[in-house]
Amino acid sequence: MSPVGGDAPVHVTLRGITRVYPAQAAQPPVHALGPIDLDLRQGEFFAVVGPSGCGKSTLLDVIAGLAVASAGDARFEGQAIDGSVPDGIGVVFQEDSSFPWLTVHDNIAFGLRELGRPADVVQAKVKYALDFMGLADFAQAYPAQLSGGMRQRVCIARTLVLEPRLILLDEPFGALDQQTRLLMGDELLRLWRETGATILLITHALDEATMLADRVGVMSARPGRFLEIVTTGWPRERDSTIVADPRFGGLTSRIWTLLRGESLRALGHTGVRR
């Protein structure tokens, strides 16, 4: 019943990934992350939770090729990731990254047009993505006319049309209200099942991680390392009603137990300033 069998091929490999910010003026160097070892299997849904400032976004940036690790080896489909975004990886950011000067339709078509795909291909794929994300009625609207949740859908659709084999999401629902988050979670599960992509989700919401992921990586305070990787054991066919499952509470509280001490430590480090 486990969604990802141990036999699925390894999709992303991280070995000893470390990020140290060099010394600045009067400040000593900051050890922000790692060392991190992790294997993501093809088609897996993996979530990362951790106290604020633990370097989870940095981890995502390293895998996306948006940041370079100070040490360690990162590979996507066997190829080293070396500071540029590899083909086949899509990223959805926490901040709204829709382009305000383009309509929803043109936002979604953006990446395909950058790749110089023929117009009819662009049309077909954009139409599919519009329907899939429930944006068909808003194709000619501008992002400013949409709610935050709808704008984030546009960003997801813009990534989706490029058919990435690995989707990285950096707190994509962080700015949304609770109900919208739950619904967007369902959308994300549907997208994951239908595309068969591997997903890495960074989140600070424990219930979100527990509900969505096959495995949840719990990170320590800075420098972030994996304290434990919790396997949820949910079936592949699932949605937000899973929060009513008797095992849901147990899993969430287990993750919180792991995180609580770390979050307190993080507060002591970086929290309330004098």
């Binding site: 996306a64 090729g65 948006l66 540029s84 975004v85 083909d87 990886i89 899509g90 990223v91 950011f93 926490q94 901040e95 709204d96 990254s97 382009f99 305000p100 000067w101 383009l102 953006f110 990446g111 950058e114 990534t159």
Partner: peptide
């Protein structure tokens, strides 16, 4: 220009010139 839009440009693997023409100047 928000940093996230420039990150998006890198995700689309755009050159500096294309980023200027298609992201920075439109913004």
């Amino acid at each position: 220009v928000p940093r996230v839009l420039l990150k998006a440009a890198r995700m689309h693997r755009m050159s500096a010139l294309r980023t200027a023409l298609r992201i920075r100047l439109p913004y």
